[in-house]
Structure formats: structure tokens, C-alpha cells
């Protein structure tokens, strides 16, 4: 179905979406790029001098940049490990026959629908607070010294919270993928004498490979921008212990009002995200026709 008339109609129908997204992408991007070369501070109104690579220089040589990079990687990597491994486990478990499967599935998935600010607050206050939190109370009750989670293990605590939010997502996708596995394949393997472990390794895992890549890449996109959990719990601290790249840019531009520096950070964040994005696009592109 492709007449000239319908092709013309199609172009007309698609153009609002394309123009809007183009505007949304190009305009701010160009401005970010432009600002990143200016000395531009909102509380020090001046001439907004063109300073070349100065902002990039200061941003990249700032010790907090290095810390932020490492924190970003640890955060993303840590959450991915927990959610992918945990997700495979949950998916295998939930796929087994059991009573009340629907209800149990809903319980496992629930955290995904909790908004980031809420989940951060719940964990910070009701669970990880050394005095009144449940963990602290249990520790005291058993005669141990309660742990100050955000003081002693700030990044680990955030990884924990974010993992709680994303584990359901990984589970849901891996479970869906697992359910699409042809049962006859598994039965054939069983007839061929494969043990459960071998069936998992040679049949289920290859079948899940695509879903696992999808989980990793999509989560990476979202995890690189983790923000609310940090803002609500630690404000990036203590020191820069939980400052990731997103939070660092937020601090420079909206807390220190240094638009130039913030923009330079933004450009760097974009470059990093694009490296990840290229992998994702390749993969999704391959699956487009499937």
C-alpha cells in the first residue's frame, strides 16, 4: 500500500512528531554546547565571555569529576549485577508451578511503580535510619551496634535502594522471555538426558540472552541519570561519596549557578550516554524486524 497520495499523507502525519522532537533535541543541545564555552554564572552577571575549553578543563580536572565518574560506574555496575542475577533467579522461580502465582508476581513487581523519591525516603528513614529504622531496631534488639548506612556505606546503600526499584523490571522482562521458551525444547533436552543445570546453561540461558541484553542496556540508560534517590538521601555526600555525573552537573548549574561549567558537564554526560546508546541502537535495530 504505497501510492504517492498515501506517501504524501504519511509525510504530513509524521511531521509534527518529527519537528517537535527535532526542536526538543536540537535547540537545547545547541544551547548547552554554546553555554559550555562561556563564562556564564547566574549570580555573577557579566559579559558571558567566550572562554574556549576553560569550562571543560576545570570540570574535567575537578577532583569531584573523577569521583563522580567512578561513582557513576559503580552505581550502574552494581545495580546491573544485582538486578540481572536477581532477575534471572526470580524469573526461574516465578515460572515454576505454585499456588497464588498471580499474587506473588504482583508482590515482586510492586516496587517498580513506587516513585523514586518515595522509595528513597522509605528506605532512608524507615529502614536505614540507625535509631528508628527497622534495621537499627533489629540490630539493637539482638544486641549489636546499629549501622549508620548512609554514613558508613553511602554508595552501597544507594545501590541497594535503586536495585530494589529495578529488580522488578528485570524480573518482569526475563520472566516474559522465559515464558516464551518452547516447552517442547526443554522436554526434548530432557529426553536427550540433559540435567537441569545443562538445560539451564544450553537452552534457557541462550534463550534469555536477548532479554538480558535488553535489560542491561535499558537500565543503563535510566541508571546513568539516577538523581532523585541521591537528592533525597545523601545530597551527594558525605563529601562526594555518592555524587554521580548527573548530580554533579545539577550541583554546578542549579546550586552554584555556574551555567558554563554545568553545560560542559552536560556535554560530557551526553557523550558518555551516546557511547552506551550506540550499543542499544544497534541491538534494538537488529530486533526491529524480528
Amino acid at each position: 500500500m504505497a501510492t504517492k497520495a498515501s506517501k504524501a499523507a504519511a509525510r504530513l502525519m509524521i511531521s509534527p512528531a518529527v519537528l517537535l522532537l527535532l526542536g526538543w533535541m536540537i535547540a537545547p543541545l545547541a544551547l548547552t554546547l554554546y553555554f559550555s564555552f562561556l563564562r556564564y554564572n547566574l549570580i555573577m552577571p557579566g559579559d558571558n565571555l567566550f572562554v574556549g575549553w576553560e569550562n571543560y578543563y576545570w570540570f574535567l580536572t575537578d577532583p569531584s569529576f573523577k569521583a563522580a565518574m567512578i561513582n557513576t560506574l559503580v552505581l550502574v555496575g552494581g545495580v546491573l549485577c544485582v538486578t540481572v542475577l536477581g532477575g534471572i533467579g526470580f524469573a526461574l522461580l516465578l515460572e515454576k508451578p505454585m499456588f497464588g502465582q498471580g499474587i506473588i508476581r504482583i508482590m515482586v513487581i510492586a516496587p517498580f511503580f513506587v516513585m523514586p523519591t518515595v522509595s528513597a525516603l522509605i528506605w532512608k528513614n524507615m529502614f536505614m535510619n540507625p535509631v528508628n529504622g527497622i534495621f537499627g531496631q533489629i540490630a539493637s534488639g539482638l544486641g549489636f551496634a546499629p549501622i549508620d548506612f548512609f554514613g558508613q556505606f553511602p554508595l552501597l546503600s544507594i545501590i541497594f535502594i535503586v536495585s530494589w526499584q529495578w529488580l522488578p523490571f528485570a524480573t518482569l522482562i526475563l520472566l516474559t522471555a522465559l515464558q516464551s521458551l518452547d516447552q517442547e525444547q526443554l522436554e526434548a533436552a530432557e529426553m536427550d538426558g540433559a540435567s537441569w543445570l545443562n538445560r539451564f546453561r544450553f537452552i534457557m540461558l541462550p534463550h534469555l540472552a536477548r532479554a538480558i541484553t535488553v535489560v542491561i542496556l535499558i537500565q543503563t540508560i535510566f541508571l546513568l541519570s539516577t538523581f532523585a534517590e541521591i537528592l533525597v538521601t545523601t545530597n551527594g555526600g558525605p563529601g562526594t561519596a555518592t555524587t554521580n555525573l548527573t548530580y554533579l552537573v545539577y550541583v554546578s548549574s542549579l546550586l552554584q549557578f555556574d551555567v558554563g561549567m554545568g553545560s560542559a558537564g552536560g556535554v560530557i554526560a551526553i557523550i558518555l550516554a551516546n557511547i552506551v546508546a550506540i550499543f542499544l541502537m544497534r541491538m534494538i535495530g537488529k530486533n526491529l524486524d524480528a
Binding site: 509524521i14 512528531a17 518529527v18 522532537l21 526538543w24 533535541m25 535547540a27 537545547p28 543541545l29 544551547l31 548547552t32 553555554f35 540508560i221 546513568l224 541519570s225 538523581f227 555525573l245 548527573t246 552537573v249 545539577y250 548549574s253 542549579l254 551555567v259 554545568g262 553545560s263 558537564g265 552536560g266 556535554v267 554526560a269 551526553i270 558518555l272 550516554a273 551516546n274 552506551v276 546508546a277 542499544l280 541502537m281 534494538i284 535495530g285 526491529l288
Partner: peptide, 23 residues
């Protein structure tokens, strides 16, 4: 076009925070 649309989703929000905020 679809790919490109998807790519806008991957633009880290923090990268365009400043100009959007100012606009």
C-alpha cells in the same frame, strides 16, 4: 526515523537541563 526518535530518549536529561531551565 524510528531509531532517531529512540535516540532522543537517550539524551541524558542533565545534558539539556541548563538551557531548558533558562528557557
Amino acid at each position: 526515523v524510528l531509531m532517531w526518535m529512540l535516540s532522543t530518549k537517550m539524551l541524558p536529561p542533565v545534558g539539556v537541563l541548563v538551557p531548558i531551565y533558562l528557557i
